[in-house]
Simulated assay, not measured.
Amino acid sequence: MKGVIVKGVGGLYYVKTESGVYPCRARGRFRKDEIIPMIGDRVEIDVVNERGEGFIKEILPRDNFMIRPPVANIDQVIAVFSVTNPDPNLLYVDKLLLMCHTSGICPVICINKIDLDEKDVASYYGNIYIKAGYKVVFTSTVNKTGIGELIGTMKGKVSAMAGPSGVGKSSLLNAIQPDLNLKTGDVSYKANRGKHTTKHVELLELKVGGYILDTPGFGAIDLSFLTRAEVAASYPEFKAYQGQCRFVDCLHIFEPGCKVKEALQAGEISYERYQNYTRIQEEVKAAEERRYD
């Protein structure tokens, strides 16, 4: 019988099949081979008793996967940030977009809480990412702005919602499908960040078709596995200048004759995006140096 792992708790994996959901254990050989089943894995199972309990017999090839949170076969990641309360963390967003590019996952950006937007922040930041080639959805759970567009984006796909705590991920999911009844948390004004409300990773089925990954969060995004060249190649707004720099291996930082830096000076590339790019490059360079020490 084939199905998809939709939840895992204490070594027990819940596999959704055409005939129902079955609690399953992983065969011992997975532990021997150091293979850990992930939420989203497509699997083959054997049901072994009348209570519907079974074993995972085979994990089918993954289209993609992420380590933190440990999930597989995700079609898209919806990167959520709010216009305020908490303030936008664009470095986190840009790291998340890089992770999507290198994992073969389509990214979508959701700018939330636009009902609190008194300084047109949403339009300013939205234009940065639209210009870079990303799909951007503007939302508010208070006046339901953009909820229909977000539903259309998720229809028939396996989606994950990611972003710092407090940006309204659970509230968005409840607006998309109220019977999900996800817990929501207030933002701590002292720390300007939200309280974590999700305790485990689970795939929730959507009535419009598809699934949404309910997860405690993506946490700190570690990009140390990337090379500096991979980071440079993962910025879509740089692709228009590919092969035009003086140096073939140009990283667009200190090199002379760099067309990306010329585009930055001309206002064709976002200053904020470029600043985050240089910070990420510094982190990746430091990780490379540690590996070779």
Rank of each mutant, 00 (worst) to 15 (best):
A229P: 03
D179R: 11
V201F: 04
M154Y: 04
Y189D: 07
V201N: 09
N181S: 13
A160T: 12
G210T: 04
G210F: 00
G210K: 01
G219K: 15
S171F: 00
L172H: 00
L226K: 01
S188L: 11
I221C: 10
K195G: 06
G148M: 08
N192A: 11
L206H: 00
E237G: 03
G209I: 08
E202F: 11
V201Q: 03
T198Y: 05
N192Q: 12
G166K: 00
H196V: 14
D179K: 12
I151Q: 03
Y235E: 03
M161H: 01
G217K: 07
A162T: 11
G168Q: 03
A160Y: 05
Y235A: 05
L180W: 05
K195I: 15
L226S: 04
Y211D: 01
R228M: 11
T215E: 04
K169P: 01
G168Y: 05
L204T: 05
D222W: 12
L203S: 00
L206Y: 02
S159I: 02
T198S: 13
A191D: 12
L206F: 05
K199C: 10
R193V: 10
R228E: 13
Q177M: 06
D214S: 13
T197M: 09
S188E: 11
T197S: 14
G166Y: 05
G166E: 03
K157G: 03
F225D: 14
F225I: 14
G185C: 12
G209E: 11
E237W: 00
T197F: 07
G219C: 14
E237C: 02
A229K: 12
D214A: 11
L204M: 14
F218G: 02
L226H: 06
N181A: 12
N181K: 15
G163N: 05
L172P: 00
G219S: 15
L173K: 04
D214Q: 07
K157W: 05
L172F: 02
L206I: 06
S165G: 10
I151E: 04
M161V: 15
